[in-house]
Design a protein around this nucleic acid. Structure first.
Lengths: 342, 342
DNA sequence: TTGTAGGCGTTATCAG
DNA sequence: CTGATAACGCCTACAA
């Protein structure tokens, strides 16, 4: 019938070759073949050659479902992240995946759209694949997910946030501290009247709290905040500024919860001939690749997204492979980047 | 010892609950439990309730390794793509993943860094997980990979390129045709002296060929091309223009193999007070989200990246689930977007 | 609608 | 260094 249904001329199904076939061809037992493939150091050089030839001959492809079933090791890591079509998480995911594949693991991607419910559903579903480890974004997870995770009893690494009491391991940074530094930075530059264009995201909320804390120390408490739904877009940044200006209040600095929003706000300001930063300062977050290139270049906060990913992958695999982790909780910090918009 | 190694007080390993445990608790046979979980329509309503309770009680999590081993269905799709930390592929991958999870499948991500060798290694390794289907980027794959793929005998969908003879299914577009349209478009606008800043990528090379073909019809053959290594960056766009200008030839239009390169070139041109597009037109590719926002806004080629992803996922799952695919080869086309830089 | 028997392809374990 | 045996947890096929 169709070209390619693993049938021979008589239309009899041909089974994919198994370890046993390789064993037969090489004149060895299946278990020796298995060892030659997975623990070559436990086997004579000559034997390895025999096995290699037989594998070549038969076109054998191991079946990790069978292997994982008995060995309890899947060499699979599940990574849950809100989305990847924005550079914020994409860089980290790319780094995780690169590092994992270097260490012989594969990555299953769970995109959770900033929803706790989706995170829980996705991760519980993925648990049935028996991953050897899990990467989570953020530190807040539904209680039932936490319970399942603990029962699953596999290494977990939380990222992109900070707490002294993670589920297991953590590599991230403190959003609240970033907020305070943003506030202090702008206060020190002399700005006094603030407004926010802010994504409705829990980690962003923490940064806002940090900013508020910083400002309140100078008795600045009257702050207009325009909340926008996630994911943040250029468009919502633009509209955010429109809204804030329509309030007819006076601002000298607008803080945005992401560079994307800042970029939108800047372009709206430019269109209205508002001079940046003399008449209005604008600050972003993330140091996305366009921030430096934007005109005017966006002042923002740099996070080492790639380093987070590499570290997360390494800690996870180290933990899986029984190595002792020197430090299970790592704060990678951040850097305020001053450019032209402040 | 440690908090959480699935041991009780006596430090005796506690096994994860299995179908048999659920069966015992619910007073049913394992196979009935399996059916209640996977084919609820084949089982009495009352039975489903019993099973649900027992699952809750035992904390049962299915083991897809075991299930997949016997059923030959893994509900796993492997997707190979050069990289995801650029919006080009990230949008498509996001769409694939979203659609797959809606249809009950998970996505294993293979990042191949534009290297055929890595694609081959990654995909062959992933084949041992017995994925139900595979998404590939592009139509050129190493012969040995093709062979393995055919032997694996699972649905394959190639994307981001076009050929009437794909391995199995295809959803993409013709790069050569895009090239011709770019050439025609710029010729019709009156441009006559062209140069290229071009990524060293096979699909980009096809677009270049299309452009050349278009230009040669008007006897324009003297074209300076500056090749840059992948991945393309803003920086290489900038340097690309520097290089081209250093040639002391005259250009009235520069075509870039991606919007990122175009953005870099534009910013270099702006810095040098070259007036765009009067003195120099610049054209990109991809319609990445910043293209419209850039100042000046970038003329480019739109590809429906999300649609490609959704379609690829749907066709793959349809094929896996035995539905007949009306059209195994889909050209999603493209659109020349005229903005301020041409 | 539910149950019985058997095996999927591999590796752990123990023995040579 | 190599091998025999027994699981691993589930689903297909068939039967009741």
């Amino acid at each position: 019938m169709s070209k390619n249904n693993n049938s021979n001329i008589l239309n009899v199904k041909i089974k994919a070759p198994t370890l046993e076939d390789v064993a037969r061809v090489s004149g060895l037992s299946p278990i020796t073949v298995s060892r030659a493939l997975n623990n070559p150091q436990k086997v004579k050089k000559q034997t390895i050659e025999k096995v290699k030839n037989a594998v070549e001959l038969t076109g054998y492809i191991p079946n990790m479902l069978a292997g994982g079933l008995v060995s309890k090791r899947s060499k699979l890591i599940a990574a849950a992240v809100p989305q990847i079509n924005n550079t914020m998480f994409a860089d980290t995911m790319q780094a995780i995946s690169d590092q994992l594949s270097q260490r012989g693991y594969h990555m299953l991607l769970c995109l959770t759209s900033y929803s706790k419910k989706m995170e829980e559903e996705f991760v519980s579903a993925v648990l049935s694949r028996r991953p050897d480890g899990i990467v989570l974004t953020g530190i807040n997870h539904s209680p039932s997910l936490k319970k399942k995770l603990l029962i699953a009893n596999i290494p977990i690494i939380e990222t992109w946030d900070f707490t002294p009491t993670p589920l297991d391991m953590l590599v991230g940074f403190s959003h609240e501290k970033i907020g305070e530094h943003i506030g202090d930075f702008l206060l020190n530059k002399g700005y006094k009247q603030f407004a926010m264009i802010w994504g409705d995201d829990e980690r962003a909320a923490l940064r806002l709290r940090g900013i508020m804390h910083s400002l309140s120390k100078r008795n600045i408490n009257d702050i207009s905040t325009h909340l926008i739904p996630m994911p943040a877009t250029y468009e919502s940044g633009r509209k955010g500024l429109q809204y804030l200006l329509s309030l007819n209040k006076k601002f000298d600095a607008i803080i945005c919860s992401s560079d994307v929003l800042a970029q939108g706000a800047i372009s709206e300001a430019t269109k209205r001939k508002i001079i940046i930063p003399q008449e209005l300062a604008i600050m972003g977050f993330g140091d996305l690749n366009f921030a430096k290139q934007n005109s005017p270049a966006i002042s923002t906060v740099f996070i080492d997204k790639v380093y987070i990913g590499k570290l997360a992958a390494d800690m996870l695999v180290d933990s899986i492979e029984g190595k002792t982790i020197a430090n299970k909780i790592i704060d990678v910090g951040f850097k305020i980047i001053e450019r032209e918009t402040t």
